[in-house]
Amino acid sequence: MSESSHGDGYGPRHRQVEIGVAAATAVFGAVVMAGSLQVGITWAVEGPRAGFFPFYVGLLILAASGVNAMRAMRTIAPGKLFASWKQLRSVASVVVPTAVYVLLLPHAGIYLSSALLIAVFMIWLGRYAWRMTLAVSVGMPFVTYFLFERWFLIPLPKGPIENMLGL
């Protein structure tokens, strides 16, 4: 890895990320082609079979990904940053708690996990006092409960707490 010539901190190079994305789309294309082969990709008497269109769609993705990777090699300056690590850290500060949230959601229920997510955000990113944090993070699930479960009769995922309360 060469030093950044742009001086705007450190971070992954744009060219590498572009090539990585092209590789990912290529893999996606290949997976689609493989899946299409399982259901038949020929053009039968009565028209194309289930895998016909997806197969060629996969092929196009594969081919175009190759072009994109080559263009990335040729046209993007090697020193150009995709984003600085600092920027990516702030992106991760949303992605990581949200990832924990979506994985927790089916087990802990939507109300508890939502309250936690909001609290984490407000304290960690917003540095709010706990009073305000508590009000919003508990208030929001309450509104959600009444709006969805009571008013619109849409069941949302529930966890042990809701079971205990018999909701």
Partner: peptide, 26 residues
């Protein structure tokens, strides 16, 4: 932002869930 962002995330998660009632969608 630090108040509205998590609320948007929660609303989006509920929205994603209610489409098919599936946690996988979230």
């Amino acid at each position: 932002f630090s108040i509205i962002a998590p609320i948007i995330l929660v609303v989006c998660a509920i929205g994603a869930y209610t489409v098919h009632n599936s946690a996988f969608d979230v």
